[in-house]
């Protein structure tokens, strides 16, 4: 069992830092290249959401990233104390974005859900957003082929 906790300001250069930090943290679990890429992409999506949507692109707040490994399971939590999401169900809809003019794809949550074994999000307006994800390494690809 291992754990780590990072706290960093909502600066976009921390997107690459966060995903590579998690990648380095899980290396002892011997993830495949695909698993590692899945985790990095999901973390990048969650942290980008916190920066762009939670804090509106301004370096006005902190993002907390917690990771825990137990056996072949990785659990990740990404939390911000930003604006929060008004309608979570709608935010989870593929291609839905609140910022259509900025070339946002609206696929962030869909990617997190698809690439990870477990996913949940809790949020309330004005109270921030907390994304929890898990990945079990060595799992057969459910959608292989």
């Amino acid at each position: 069992m291992n754990e780590m906790y990072l706290k960093f300001p909502s600066l976009s250069e921390n997107e690459v830092f966060a995903r590579n930090a998690v990648a380095a943290f899980v290396l002892p679990l011997n993830p495949t290249l695909t698993e590692l890429s899945d985790v990095k992409t999901a973390v990048s999506e969650a942290v980008t959401n916190a920066i762009v949507h939670g804090y509106g692109g301004a370096a006005e707040g902190w993002i907390e990233l917690k990771c825990r490994t137990d056996g072949d399971l990785l659990e990740i939590e990404v939390a911000d104390r930003g604006r929060g999401i008004e309608d979570v169900a709608r935010a989870l809809t593929p291609f839905f974005t609140t910022l259509p003019g900025e070339e946002r794809s609206g696929m962030g949550f869909t990617i997190m859900q698809t690439f990870m074994s477990g996913f949940s999000v809790s949020s309330a307006p004005g109270e921030g957003t907390r994304v929890k994800m898990s990945k079990r390494f060595g799992e057969l690809e459910a959608n292989a082929g």
Partner: peptide, 13 residues
């Protein structure tokens, strides 16, 4: 070496 959903928005643009 890496691309997340930002790449989707970029390519569609």
């Amino acid at each position: 070496r890496f691309m997340d959903s930002t790449g989707i928005g970029f390519l569609i643009g």
